[in-house]
Structure formats: structure tokens, C-alpha cells
Write a protein that binds this DNA or RNA. Structure first.
Lengths: 200, 200
DNA sequence: GTGATATAATTAACAGTGTTAAGTTAAATA
DNA sequence: TATTTAACTTAACACTGTTAATTATATCAC
């Protein structure tokens, strides 16, 4: 009676196939320029098959973004070892966040800019991966405050300030690649350093 | 022989009419969801007439964004009176920038997020309005450095850090309106205050 | 005022879009 | 082997940006 199991496995496999085809195309051509037919061609199925696995194009985007957030979360979680020096950990996390965005610029934009335009339910709801990412940041900041390194005692505000800084520099670097930026690493470091110093 | 002049005036008027119809629709429905036919309907011309005044849809977006940048520049320029207290002026400018973004969230996104996706030539080239906006910021920062209020002496980096902060918080507030943000004004003030303190 | 000219605006068309409903094929069950 | 069920496809709808060809209109010279 392993038939159902196999079929379920096959369904899951095709779903993943669709998803990764969609991601590849979204990243290389941009969400709007990718058609359901293009995705279908890539996986060698008819366009309508996709609708058996995803509600619509926005749902596809949704799933792609969820994966991206999971990747971001994993990247970050590998850093929270040193609780002894919370500021250094926060600094590293900030850097890792920006670097993630610059390593996968299109994925970052899809998740944090394009998606909100289509899905009003931002993907930061309770229990979501997005919330987990922000929880990670909250923890980092919380430890800094607990050890009385930061002036400001409001964890929420402090976290949001930090997020603003890294989100801002990430998007600017992605969106305006031809702007005469200061040397990349220097700019990123200065943004993070400035924010942390300002919070002390 | 004022015929040519009148004709030119009429052409210009229709061009402006198209532009303002496009802006209204872009803002209320989003760039992607607005069709040339919708714009044409609004101004009661056939769709193809638009192509006599604008190269294509991206060109329309381009013109809309240029206007937005001009508005932003005007808003900012009204503030640079007090050279005596450059930090206070910078603080006010930062607030004005964010408030502009939140007052016209769709225009802000069109200009700083959507447009870069279509026009690789970011609108920050030499002599452009975008450059003027950044020049304004440069001046503010420059004065702070001249009066030795800021630690960092690199005008470019300092300005870019400031821009990152305000851009970041503006976009986050626009894109994730349902996130449990700290009280808006407090968050904005803290972001700006933190950045300035960090730069001192 | 009439005819020629230039310019403004339109219609028709093309190749493409997301998505739905109906139809077909293939596989698992009885 | 016949029947049921799940997976997939075909055909269609109303729409998209954009181009080429066509029509209408207003200005000019006479």
C-alpha cells in the first residue's frame, strides 16, 4: 500500500521543481517579466499544471520568499554563539544580513519589496519565518540591553532602528549599483558601527 | 504667427494631462496594474496617443519620478536656513525626508524602488534632480563636519550612512504597515537621533 | 472660400499575459 | 478487464504593451 506514499512523494517533487524553476526565473528576469508559461516551459509541463500546485502567481512568489527567509534565518542562526560579547555578535549579524542581501539581491528584493506589494499579509505574522528572523534580531538586541551596553532600554525600538539601518543600506546598494558609493565594505561597516555607537 | 506657440502650448498641456493621469493611477493602483488603456480612458484619448508624447510606459514612470524628486527637493530646500546649528538642520531634513516618503508612499516607492527595476540609469546621474537631492544632503553633512561636530570626516560616507538610515525606516514603514512598530514618530526620531549620535 | 499640406489622433492588429472550465489521458482499484 | 480517480492538457476569455497603417483636423498658400 505504498502507492499513496509514492504518489505523494512525486507530487511534492514536482511542487519543488516548479518552485525552483520559478525562483530561477524570478531572480534572473524579475517577477513581472516571468510568465506562468515560461515557468511551465522550463519544467516541461503545460501552464495550467502549475495551478494544481499553487493557487496563483502570487502564491508562487509567496513560497519563494518563504524559502528565502528560511535561508536568511539559517545564515543568521549560525552566528549567535558568543553571548559574552553581544555587541560583537550584533555587529556580525548586521554584516551577515547585508551580505545575504547583496549575495542574493533579487531574492532579497522579492521578499522585502516586491512581495509586500502583492500580499498585504507581509509574511511577518505570528509564527511565520519572517517573525522568527525578527525574533533573532530581538534576542541580539535584548542581550546588549541586558548587559547595559545600550542607552535605550526599549528592545522593540532598538531592534527596529537596527533593522532600518541594514535594510536601508542593503536596498540602496542593490537598487543604485551605479551610484558613486564609498567602498562597499567600508560603507556597510560604517552604517552598522554608527548605529551601534548611536545606541550606546 | 502665434499659431505655433499655441500648438506647442496645447501639446505641453496634453502631456501634463497624461502625466498627471498616469501619476494618479500609478499611485492608486500600482505601476504594474495600470495599463496604457486605463490612462487613455482617463484622459479620454485613444491609447496610442500617449505614444506621441512618451516613448513607452517606462518613460511615463520616468517622468512621474522626476516630478517626485523635484517635489522632494523643494520640500527639503525650504529647511536649510539655519547654518548656525547644522546638526539641528540635518535632523530636521532627515525627518522631512521620511515624512515626505510617508506622505506619498506610492510615489516614494515608484521613485526609489520600482523605477530602478526598469531604468538601469537610476536617475541619479550628473545634473539630474536625483543628484541635486543627494547634493543637498551632502551640504548638510558637510557643514556638520566643518564645524567639527562629526567624528567621521569623509563627507561621502557620512552622507550615505544618513541616507541608508532614512531610506530604510521609510521603506519598512511603507512596506510592512501591519508590523507591530513602535509609535511612528518615536521610531523615526530614534533612527535619526541614533544615526547622528553615532556619527558624532 | 477652395485645395494642398502637415500634424494630430485613431483603428486594427500582433504576440503575449494570468486564469478558468472543459476535456483527455494514464494509472490504480475492484 | 472494466471502472473509478487523479493528473494533466487544450481551448478559451479578457486583458496587456506596442507598432503600422489609416483617418480626421486644422493650418497654410492661393
Amino acid at each position: 500500500m505504498g502507492v499513496k506514499e509514492r504518489r505523494a512523494r512525486e507530487k511534492e517533487q514536482l511542487q519543488r521543481q516548479i518552485l525552483s524553476a520559478a525562483r530561477e526565473l524570478f531572480v534572473s528576469e524579475g517577477y513581472e517579466k516571468v510568465s506562468m508559461r515560461k515557468i511551465a516551459n522550463k519544467i516541461e509541463y503545460s501552464p495550467t499544471t502549475i495551478y494544481l500546485y499553487f493557487k496563483d502567481k502570487a502564491d508562487l512568489l509567496d513560497s519563494v520568499c518563504k524559502e528565502t527567509l528560511l535561508n536568511l534565518l539559517n545564515t543568521l542562526e549560525q552566528l549567535k554563539s558568543d553571548i559574552s560579547d553581544p555587541v560583537e555578535t550584533l555587529r556580525k549579524s548586521g554584516r551577515a544580513y547585508v551580505e545575504f542581501g547583496l549575495k542574493y539581491p533579487q531574492d532579497y528584493k522579492l521578499t522585502f519589496v516586491i512581495r509586500p506589494q502583492f500580499q498585504k499579509g507581509l509574511g511577518l505574522e505570528e509564527g511565520s519565518v519572517g517573525e522568527q528572523v525578527f525574533n533573532y534580531l530581538r534576542e541580539m538586541v535584548s542581550e546588549c540591553i541586558r548587559q547595559q551596553v545600550f542607552r535605550q532600554v526599549d528592545v522593540e525600538t532598538t531592534g527596529q532602528v537596527m533593522w532600518s539601518a541594514v535594510h536601508g543600506v542593503t536596498l540602496l546598494l542593490i537598487d543604485f549599483p551605479d551610484f558613486p558609493w564609498t567602498e562597499r565594505d567600508k560603507l556597510i561597516d560604517t552604517v552598522i558601527h554608527t548605529t551601534i555607537e548611536g545606541l550606546k
